[in-house]
């Protein structure tokens, strides 16, 4: 190996090792701990029972048996997916006209219009939820599923608007002109040209909204009523109320798997290769 090659190797490791080690220790290791925790027994006062006792590993499938023992927990997963789905859909309905308008406005105005979308989100997340407590209280809508969805949409809307706008802005206007020349009406032009071209933007927006909603606990807690419990609330409850860490870990692990599957799905759906075929 040449001297330069050696030095190049050294540089490469010097640069890549610190962040890699940091993330291996503080991201990957904790995730793996979560996996083992889901097979451990709960500790008497909380936390986990020791992994090794009397020279033997104490692992159990009890928590999984408990989870799959009845439909309650699966039902909460299902419900969370429904709420996430509804939120994503409403975000899309709200975001599309706005993104379209910004993309269609003169170039010099676009940055300002985008900035106006981002600005409200420079305020703290809790303040945005708090605003809805004040707004919905007198209307008698606080503590209802509507309040939860309103809060979810409000908090996640820009994550739909921005990727959508980024996509729409790139569209070639001549395509629409060509369609018009061929006699396509406004609706046909949208449905046959703009919409299919915007699908990658929609898919990335969907991932950016759907996934965080799945893990949300503060919004159902502050705005929701008696039945508004999502996976996030359930996980939080196991760690910070019921002191059942194995169950909390199992729930977290299943949520992680669901999220990874969704992310892979949306990446596949948004990939240019698929769009072409």
């Amino acid at each position: 190996m040449t001297k330069r090659g050696l030095r190049g190797d050294l540089t490469r490791w010097l640069v890549s090792l610190p962040p890699t080690v940091f993330l291996l220790v503080f991201f990957l290791a904790p995730t793996l701990i979560m996996v083992t925790a889901s097979f451990q027994n709960p500790g008497e006062f909380g936390g986990l029972a020791p992994l090794f006792a009397e020279g033997q590993a104490r692992l159990t499938l009890e928590t999984y048996r408990f989870f799959f023992g009845d439909w309650i927990y699966a039902e909460i997963f299902l419900r969370s997916f429904l709420v996430a789905g509804a939120t994503t859909l409403i975000c899309l309905i709200f975001a599309y006209p706005l993104a379209l308008t910004i993309a269609a406005s003169p170039k010099r105005h676009r940055d300002l219009l985008v900035l106006l979308v981002i600005l409200p989100f420079a305020s703290n997340f809790l303040i945005r939820v708090y605003a809805w407590i004040i707004l919905l209280g007198p209307a008698g809508l606080l503590y209802t599923p509507i309040a939860v969805i309103a809060g979810m949409v409000y908090v996640h809307l820009p994550f739909m608007i921005l990727p959508l706008y980024t996509n729409l802005e790139k569209h070639d206007p001549t395509l629409l002109e060509a369609a018009q020349d061929l006699g396509a009406g406004a609706w046909t032009r949208f449905w046959r040209v703009t919409w299919p071209l915007s699908l990658p933007g929609i898919w990335s927006g969907t991932a950016l909204v759907f996934i965080p909603v799945l893990g949300m606990f503060a919004i159902p807690e502050l705005l929701g009523g008696t039945g508004d419990i999502l996976i996030g609330n359930l996980i939080k409850e196991q760690f910070l109320e019921s002191r059942d860490w194995p169950l909390g870990s199992t729930l977290s692990l299943l949520l992680t798997l669901a999220v990874l599957a969704l992310a892979a799905l949306s990446a596949w759906a948004a990939s240019p290769r698929r769009q072409r075929s």
Binding site: T31, I33, A37, I211
Partner: peptide
Amino acid sequence: MPEILLGVSLLL
């Protein structure tokens, strides 16, 4: 990842 997962796994 949803933030809660990061929070919970770090806590563990």
